[in-house]
């Protein structure tokens, strides 16, 4: 299978007041063509930073310390700024969390779609218009000709997210990065956008990196799941493996935290404790202050657990699973 994205041993850090704090530690995973990989975890675990690393859009105080990011076989970390810019849009497109602010409010939808198509496909204005209409139809927008003339404020959130998806897809990227694209939408629209992405993936033959903290969304869309905790990958497996047989105590905690209406005992069981600050130093496993099993295992406080393959394709980093 062809890999559209391959991240290897990625380390990234933010410098705050001239001190570097590691936000991503040894992250590795890959995405094949026609596959959706979900990255899940709490706010601040490094999900969005991962996407920004791939897009090379880290804020000024952030940097990739080591590791490589291959998109379509090219290592982005070795490219110049100008070369990376050619990759953005063309090879990898990104859908943002907040559709309300991700469009320029002063320009029509049509202008913004066309400018992107002309830029990436070298189409004439007329061709670009036709392509724009085609893609708006693809994302399920009724009377696209009219929509092209409208400004972002005239569209609802769901419509704007569709426009953004159309904009990203119209450049025909091989990798689609979606950073919580449904978080700002209400549930019915969320469902529509998810099935839209599923259909489009098959259509475009692209790989999707989907960032979310919503396990319901994961179950719906993902082929494989990567669980991040405090900048580290703690578990990786197919969606089936992760949901049927979660191995890491953190993943189990996440599953339990989802309320299940079908059970008699309708109760949310949160993971105790709070997420560590990046400035905090924790020896051993980063999850140990919150882990229910750590107290009986001294190793958890001494060394960081290595990634092991518990079953084919299912990896976990936990001392207790050895």
């Amino acid at each position: 299978m062809e890999k559209v994205l391959d991240i290897q041993n990625l380390h990234a850090a933010f410098s705050i007041q001239k001190k570097d704090y590691e936000v991503l530690h040894d992250i590795s995973f890959s995405i094949n063509r026609n596959e959706t990989v979900c990255v899940v975890g709490e706010s601040g675990c490094g999900k969005s930073v991962t996407t920004l690393c791939i897009m090379q859009l880290l804020p000024k105080n952030g940097k990739i310390q080591s590791g490589s990011i291959y998109v379509d076989g090219t290592d982005l970390t070795k490219l110049s700024k100008k070369e990376v810019r050619k990759f953005r849009g063309k090879k990898m497109g990104m859908i943002f969390q907040e559709p309300m602010t991700a469009l320029n409010p002063l320009l029509t939808i049509g202008f913004q779609l066309r400018e992107n198509i002309i830029n990436h496909r070298g189409a004439s204005k007329k061709e670009a218009n036709a392509i724009a209409i085609e893609y708006l139809k693809k994302v399920g927008i009724a009377n696209p000709e009219q929509r092209l003339k409208q400004y972002p404020f005239q569209l609802s959130g769901g419509l704007r997210q569709r426009v953004l998806i159309a904009m990203v897809l119209s450049a025909q990227p091989d990798l689609l990065i979606a950073d919580e694209p449904t978080t700002a939408l209400d549930v019915t629209i969320q469902k529509q956008v998810l099935s839209l992405l599923n259909d489009l993936k098959k259509d475009m033959n692209a790989g999707i990196l989907f960032i979310t903290h919503d396990l319901g969304v994961v179950a719906e869309i993902a082929d494989r799941v990567v669980v991040l905790y405090a900048g580290r990958k703690v578990e990786e497996g197919t969606t089936h493996q992760i949901f049927k047989n979660p191995l890491h105590p953190y993943t189990i905690g996440l599953m339990n935290a989802v309320p299940n209406v079908d059970l008699d005992e309708f109760e949310i069981r949160p993971i105790p404790g709070t997420f560590p600050n990046i400035t905090e130093k924790i020896d051993g496993c980063r999850f140990n202050p919150r882990c229910p099993h750590a107290s009986s295992c001294p190793k958890c406080f001494e060394t960081a657990p290595e990634m092991i393959e518990a079953e084919p394709g299912h990896f976990v980093a936990c001392h207790l699973k050895k």
Binding site: L57, R85, R88, G89, F96, L103, N119
Partner: peptide, 14 residues
């Protein structure tokens, strides 16, 4: 700092 500028940049604009 607006998000649409980041969005446009992520689409490969110079």
């Amino acid at each position: 700092e607006e998000e649409y500028i980041t969005a446009i940049r992520s689409l490969g604009a110079s």
